[in-house]
Amino acid sequence: MIPFDFEYYKPSSVREAVLWFQQLQVQRKNPMYFSGGTEIITWARRNSIQPGAVIDLKAIPECGVIGFHQDRLILGSCVSLSVLSSANPFPLLSVTALGVADQTARNQITLGGNICGKIHFRETVLPLLMSDSRVILAGEKGAREVSIHEVFLHQIKLEKGEFIVQILIEREYLSLPFFHVKKRQIGNVGYPLVTMAALKKDERTRTAYSGVCVFPFRSIEIDQALNDATIPLTNRIEQAIGKLPAPVVTNEEGSAAYREYVLKQTMAEAVITLEGR
């Protein structure tokens, strides 16, 4: 049971959503954009967030799109992870999405919601970081298209009142050789010890990680270390570990030392898999 009240709005256009946000902001109602809603409902039930209004984006046509325009795949931010995996326009993104939560939850969790969540893992951003995807944002100043790297560094960084409308991925990335693994302490559902995704482009491996630090990330320095074919793989991995952007997490899934051990094994699997392709 959510222990407080809020208002609910369901705009049918991008412009209407932005206007609602502005108006509710003026009224000091602390509005929040709402997509799948699973995380907002969870936090609200715990009284950890107290929005005075939520703006449900699911009726906005642009946010529900899966399609191609010229040489780019267009993914609406409100596409559910199960629909995304089933449509499978980007296999690496599909398998990554299939690792999030469970099948029933994936019928509700959306691509945009997963990326913008507060939870540490936000795994669907990994393929988007490696494919240098672009993001269409809408806000007070209108719509803008930016690189994912401009708005996602450890977490999403949007201007007040902005939301993700669509994500654009160049077609050339969709069929590249890839590697993906999610290693958990136990079972097939749950949070990861290590999630690693990798793509091979122009004979170089790009990697991205979740579960290792308190945020998902892609690191150019780590990729440079792993791609240095002049030294043995174990040395490359040691160098890559030295480039991690934050301390390795210790939590109930595993200690930092154990996680680092698992990460090293996973890096080796990824490099060996992709160097042979």
């Binding site: 049971m1 809603g37 699973t38 409902i41 039930r45 199960s82 029933t104 939850a105 509700q108």
Partner: peptide
């Protein structure tokens, strides 16, 4: 659990199973 973990509250919405504790 009312946290989307256990599935005891599962219903079908337009034919698809969802967790009713995680939907307004």
């Amino acid at each position: 659990c009312e946290n989307g973990d256990c599935g005891a509250c599962t219903i079908l919405v337009n034919g698809l199973p969802i967790k009713s504790c995680l939907m307004l």
